[in-house]
């Protein structure tokens, strides 16, 4: 619908004046921000990176017969990736990498 009298604009201005609209432009707006939401997300990120790292290490070891060295190596890499994931969760510089 076209804005004949700028109603949408005036409504937006009024809402902003009353503080009803949160300022947009927020990066990952809408993702759970409560302590439980953040905590759960961080936990899931760490665990999933660890699981992927362990899985890669285990499968490579089984393939190459080098148990347990690659497993240990990828366990460490997985932990680092988990920390990296959590860091990105809180990294305000969106859009650069992630």
């Amino acid at each position: 619908m076209d804005e004949r009298d700028g109603f949408e604009r005036r409504l937006r201005e009024a809402r902003t004046r009353q503080g009803l609209d949160k300022p947009t432009g927020n990066d990952r707006a809408g993702l759970p921000t409560g302590p439980w939401g953040i905590g759960f997300r961080a936990g899931v990120e760490v665990v999933s990176a660890l699981v992927v790292g362990i899985l890669i290490g285990y499968l490579l070891d089984r393939w190459l017969g080098t148990w347990p060295w690659l497993f240990l190596l990828f366990f460490l890499a997985g932990s680092a990736a988990g920390v990296l994931n959590v860091y990105r969760l809180f990294d305000p510089r969106r859009g650069r990498r992630s």
Binding site: V44, E45, V47, S48, A49, V51, V52, G53, I56, F74, A77, G78, A81, G82, L84, N85, R88
Partner: peptide
């Protein structure tokens, strides 16, 4: 970085 990328579907 690779593990971090691969962990996306898991998480």
């Amino acid at each position: 970085e690779l593990i971090s990328y691969l962990s996306r579907p898991v998480s």
